[in-house]
Design a protein around this nucleic acid. Structure first.
Lengths: 180, 180
DNA sequence: GTTGAAAGCGCCCCATT
DNA sequence: AATGGGGCGCTTTCAAC
């Protein structure tokens, strides 16, 4: 596992809230990120706690939204999603983020969207089955009310083991299939 | 869950390999993406299979790399990672992807990296604790051998519920902390 | 694909510090 | 406030069918 060693020494709590997040929680979260199905007993053995204690801490980490969920990671390409692109969006006049968020939700192929610095108003991450499908998505996006222009950058190949967009339910195999 | 309804009708298998991925596998994968800790028995009840059968299918889905892992999803901001940016990288002459991949692995703050179409040779996704940390990372990247220039786009706010980069072990709380 | 049995685990209560 | 132990029911796992 690639580790964030450059961060050694970064100490907890620079905020108002008590933020009970200690060494044990750290190890538990790390273990669950590596394998979300690890049993509490096994984690407990690794960190020196009983399974009961581990469960309680995990419950608390979920309640405080440090852990937001557990999910299976899938390769989008294994589910028939082979085309990926970033789309810079330019809007007419002032772009109200509220309205932009609405627009974005209309297109399930948009797997991430954010407002950004620089010339563009927003940056979209789009997944499509193939180039034809991507073109269709792009046309759909460009017909949205106040979107003036888009600039697309297609992803060619990944330089890192694609940390596989878990929880991206839009890439879920709702009707798509086709392995490898 | 946002669903990929535009894909209705997309049929399996347009490749050479048998690609044994049916309706049942689809439901199982969807269930595990929603909650990776769901028991095989519960999934079985939902899809009409015994827990044993579900386990065998999940084992096979893992072996064929349709499912690449199970992971806890965390909010990077909850672990002290509050700064996010995309960095376009321009290289001297022809940029060999092999060498680029090496460079990328030297910087754990790079959570995604890919070669892309357009003017830039590569696009990096970078997470840092704060703007100071990001600047430090950027300087580090720019001193790499054949990197000619970079253009950074900072993320301001997300327009979609941040599908939380699971498995991104670089964001793991190895030494960082600080909740909320 | 199923069932059945053994081992392990999740989960809840309660005593302990 | 947080941990550990015990008990019961469910889950996992592996056999056999």
């Amino acid at each position: 596992m690639r580790s964030m060693d450059v961060l050694a020494g970064y100490s907890a709590r620079m905020n108002s809230r008590p933020a009970p997040f200690d060494e044990l929680d750290r190890k538990i979260v790390t273990a669950l990120m590596a394998n979300a199905r690890t049993s509490f007993a096994e984690i407990g053995a690794a960190v020196g706690l009983s399974s009961t204690a581990v469960k309680r801490r995990v419950d608390r980490l979920r309640e405080t939204d440090v852990i937001t969920g557990f999910t299976a990671t899938v390769k989008p390409s294994a589910l028939g999603w082979r085309t990926e692109a970033y789309v810079e969006v330019y809007c007419e006049g002032a772009a109200p983020p509220r309205r932009l968020a609405e627009v974005v939700r209309n297109h399930p192929e948009i797997t991430a969207a954010m407002t950004v610095t620089g010339g563009a108003d927003a940056l979209l991450h789009v997944r499509a089955r193939d180039v034809e499908h991507f073109e269709e998505v792009l046309e759909r996006i460009r017909t949205e009310p106040f979107i003036r222009k888009t600039i697309s950058v297609m992803v060619l190949s990944h330089l890192l083991p694609e940390s596989p967009e878990a929880g991206a339910s839009n890439v879920a195999p709702d009707s798509a299939a086709d392995v490898r």
